[in-house]
């Protein structure tokens, strides 16, 4: 009945998902939808189940009830051996980077290529070098081990590994948490730049309000296990719901919004 004509299947469809760990209820009837090409953010306070939802979407956890569809396919397929083609269509960047500590940066980035393609070593090296250059890391960092990289560089390296197969869908878990403001800004810009170049859909979990204002096309705010707000940042900022209002209109929320308004005016 909606006015927009939905010809394409949504990239992600989460319907009526509930999650319980023993007695603790993490999600209660969460539903949301991500369409192709958007930057979709899942926001919420600490412990609101953002990361758990992300882990369920990428198939690391199974929800207690409800259904999650990725590219129109049930995400439970990811567990089986026939989940390989589905795995290849998305990349995940974990919060701490989750780089394999026994491998150099270049070897880390090359893992999906080595496992999923039959390319020869030279082409793999070329693709890896391209992705390392795209995320803005210097070429000589390729032979370094994760323990030799700074936090910001590790984040970029993790992004390079996540996008190495040109995924259609990119998941980011707290991409800017723990980074200084300058590096975090740089990371936001990098993400927009890469999205324009490679054209992927982004789903990110974050509570960085600046990132939300600057990047997110749509935001789902989780609170007490439910989706309490869903829409663009403008819509959410004017939402009357007390939970949403509190989240986006606290001192930090207002500051981020003012700063965003400032940059928009600057660009005009």
């Amino acid at each position: 009945m909606s006015l927009t004509v939905q010809t394409e299947t949504p990239v992600i469809e989460v319907s009526h998902v509930s999650t319980r760990f023993g007695q603790a209820v993490v999600h209660e009837d969460v539903s949301l939808m991500v369409v192709r090409g958007e930057i979709f953010a899942i926001a919420g306070g600490n412990g609101s189940g953002k990361s758990t939802l992300l882990r369920e979407i990428v198939g690391l956890l199974t929800p207690t009830s409800g259904e999650i569809r990725l590219f129109g396919r049930d995400s439970r397929e990811l567990e089986g051996s026939d989940g390989q083609p589905l795995h290849r269509r998305f990349g995940v960047m974990f919060q701490g980077g989750a780089l394999f500590s026994s491998m150099t940066l270049a070897e880390n980035v090359a893992v999906p290529l080595r496992e999923h393609t039959h390319l020869n070593a030279r082409i793999i090296r070329d693709i890896v070098a391209l992705k390392i250059a795209l995320v803005g890391l210097p070429p000589d960092s390729a032979v370094k081990f994760p323990s030799e990289l700074s936090g910001g560089m590790r984040r970029r390296a993790a992004l390079a590994r996540a996008i190495v197969m040109d995924p259609e869908l990119l998941f980011l878990d707290e991409p800017t948490a723990g980074l200084d403001p300058i590096i975090a800004d740089g990371f936001d810009q990098l993400l927009v730049h890469l999205k324009r170049l490679l054209g992927f859909t982004v789903v990110m979990v974050t509570h960085d309000l600046d990132t939300l204002w600057r990047l997110a096309d749509r935001v789902a705010l989780l609170g007490s296990g439910r989706v309490v707000g869903l829409g663009t940042m403008e819509e959410l900022a004017h939402c009357e719901d007390p939970l949403v209002h509190e989240y986006f209109n606290g001192p930090r929320g207002r500051a981020a919004r003012l700063q965003y308004a400032g940059t928009v005016m600057h660009q005009d």
């Binding site: 070329d126 070098a129 391209l130 070429p139 000589d140 032979v143 170049l197």
Partner: peptide, 24 residues
């Protein structure tokens, strides 16, 4: 055109790709 864009993206980064990788 969208493929050509990707090609030019690679071409503009070719300097970084074609340099010999630093060795340990």
């Amino acid at each position: 055109s969208e493929y050509a864009q990707l090609l030019s993206l690679v071409a503009s980064n070719w300097g970084a790709i074609a340099t010999d990788p630093p060795v340990r």
